[in-house]
Amino acid sequence: MQFFKSIVFLCAFSVSVSANQKNEYDVSSFQDAANKAVEKAKENGWLKDIDKPTIQEKDIALAKSIADQAVVISSETMKRALPQQQNKIDLLEGTDGAIFVSFSMPRRALIDAFQVAKEHNLTILFRGLEKGATHISSTMKLIQKLSAISKVEPNVGINPLRFKEFNVTGVPTIVIRNGNKHLIAQGTLNAQYAKEQFDQKQGDFKFEPLGQLFNIDEPDIIEQMKAVAGKIDWAEKQRLAKERFWKKYKTYPLPTSDESKQWLIDTTVRVTQDIKNGRGEILARAGDITNPLKQYPMHLTIFVIDPYVKSQVDWVKEELKSISGQFQIHLTHMDKDKGWDDLSKFRNEFGAPVFILPKQVIEKFKVEATPSKIETQSNGYLLVRQFDWSEK
């Protein structure tokens, strides 16, 4: 049997990784991952209007929730986890309980624990990565060796919250569980005895230590996560993300128009598949040729301007005084060094939302220069007008 081919680290999602592949869950590299996450969040606008991000109680709760998904470190456990990987994984589900262990235990005792767990349908649980480890791969190798020597592959995982739930402070400890009832047997690997006592006892029961207990060497993986997160300067990461955003953001500056011209865009389309509303009613059938602006009339005006040409900004402000219906203001670009400040300034100046001109608008409406104005027409067409700005 080839043991431990894969691992799964379950956060908001589940990922399986071959034991021969690089594992991405390096505790020491959480900070780098966080940096990238903050930068990506800024690019997507998720950090908009957040001035002083700090770690809140809800963040700690999230970390606990993530850890409670557990780290699954045996392929046998993975087989059980994958069908339900979109949900919260309970490593004790479908088992009779768990054996709580630590690498502080003698190797012989760990081997016995693996064999007992497999025989009695129990999950092996560690509190975290082995002492001094910063990468799960080293823990994986130790587990793989134990499994190979014991010639069994029980369910194995890391879940510090279970240690807290059953107040496990020394190992080995067996927990037999069925529904809301549980029995805790410390200092023993005699699962048969624990199960017999479980059947005889009424309600929850905890034995005094039945044998030698060993300290738990592995640090709580949740505490490791919190410690690393606590060292991250989120305000600085946000500042850097802000600085980088506009340098990476693709914009499409257009020349200033030197002629006035206009053209029409036909919005007629052929429907490729049935279009239904929320009630299931068919609005258009596949093969139909329809003009959505005729069928569902609306009045929309789109202004496309260079925000750094003051006369174009003034022109839009004057146009807005008499406009009717919906409107949008598209800015061709932002100063790469002052992007956020300038965007805020233009929003305040127009007193309305503004957008950075997307490539799709340029291509669909054949926009060539600024300023331009795009308006829906009652006949189902879009009228695009480009204004001569050479004398402005």
Rank of each mutant, 00 (worst) to 15 (best):
H330T: 02
E318T: 14
A235D: 09
I7Y: 03
H333Y: 15
T77S: 14
A194E: 01
K359G: 02
V101K: 03
I176M: 06
T54C: 09
D337S: 13
P53Y: 02
T54L: 13
A369C: 03
V367K: 04
K321C: 08
G278K: 15
Q197M: 13
N159K: 05
W340R: 02
S311V: 14
S311C: 09
A33Y: 11
V316A: 01
L210D: 08
N348D: 14
K48D: 12
S137W: 10
T376I: 06
K181S: 04
L210Y: 07
V27Y: 03
D337T: 11
H120L: 05
H299D: 11
A41C: 10
P53G: 03
I374S: 04
E318D: 13
T376S: 13
N180I: 10
I99A: 05
F355V: 00
S75K: 11
E259W: 04
A191G: 04
T95A: 07
F346W: 10
M105R: 05
I99G: 03
A369L: 03
S150F: 07
F198D: 02
L146A: 04
T268L: 03
N190Y: 08
A19C: 10
S14C: 12
Q328W: 06
L254E: 01
L343F: 11
D306P: 01
G203S: 08
A241K: 04
V309W: 04
D217F: 12
F163G: 01
L331I: 09
L82Y: 09
K131D: 11
R162G: 00
Q262G: 15
S324A: 13
K22R: 12
A369I: 06
D32K: 09
G203Y: 06
K261H: 15
F350Y: 12
P106T: 09
E236F: 09
G203L: 07
E363L: 11
K151C: 07
R127P: 02
K359M: 12
T169Y: 05
T95H: 08
K58V: 14
P358G: 06
L82W: 13
D96Y: 08
P219S: 10
G157R: 05
F198E: 03
N190E: 09
W263I: 02
F214H: 15
D220Q: 05
G157F: 04
Q295A: 15
D112W: 08
W389L: 05
K321T: 09
D314S: 12
I136W: 00
N44P: 00
D314A: 14
Q238A: 12
Y25C: 12
V152P: 05
M334W: 02
I149E: 15
V316T: 03
I282H: 07
F126H: 03
R279M: 13
L343V: 02
L146V: 07
V309F: 08
S137N: 11
K237A: 04
S311G: 05
